[in-house]
């Protein structure tokens, strides 16, 4: 994806976002949105796209994305029930601590997504990461290692492999 087509895509997305938020179809609203979106794209043209991060959206990419989202939603529900049980139990069976796990991803965007996903999975909270390790805090420290080789990690790795 070149920088120009990326800028056009961003412009279309911004305009669509504006129209959805405005919930009206007047000429004035749309012209105002047009001007604002064009100005945003124009002034941020240097910052918008990084060639190493840019990807082509294909069917396989979308499939991996959908699988990732479903795995993530499932783990959000699981994590919430687990934390609710821990909080409401009388003794609070927690054993908090820090643990480093391996970093399976290369691209900064995917690393950020994986970090957010770790925060949403059962009893884990990502604190710091570099290209090789992620520092994770766990409510029960022994369960943190189970993230390596879990369904979530597999979904994220599949996500990265498609992009190559």
């Amino acid at each position: 994806m070149t920088k120009k087509s990326g800028a056009i895509l961003l412009f279309v997305l911004l305009l669509g976002f504006w129209i959805v938020l405005a919930t009206r179809w007047d000429l004035t609203t749309i012209i105002a949105g047009f001007i604002v979106s064009a100005m945003i794209v124009f002034y941020n043209y240097d910052l918008i796209f990084n060639h190493q991060e840019a990807t082509v959206i294909t069917l396989r990419y979308l499939k991996a994305l959908v699988i990732f989202v479903f795995v993530l939603l499932f783990s959000i529900i699981k994590s919430n029930v687990q934390v609710a049980i821990i909080v409401l139990s009388k003794k609070m069976p927690i054993n908090p601590g820090f643990q480093t796990i391996r970093q399976p991803l290369k691209k900064a965007m995917n690393q950020a997504m994986y970090g957010n996903a770790i925060t949403l999975t059962p009893g884990t909270l990502s604190i710091d990461m570099d290209d090789e390790h992620i520092l994770v805090h766990g409510l029960i420290v022994d369960t943190v290692k189970e993230l390596e080789g879990s369904a979530l990690e597999k979904a994220v790795i599949a996500f990265e492999e498609v992009i190559k």
């Binding site: 909080v87 908090p96 925060t119 909270l125």
Partner: peptide, 19 residues
């Protein structure tokens, strides 16, 4: 309120608020 330190409190608030 119940959790012992900052990190454990973050667990409770982020997850439950999101859900």
């Amino acid at each position: 309120i119940r959790m012992p330190d900052v990190f454990c409190r973050m667990h409770a608030t982020t997850k439950c608020d999101t859900m």
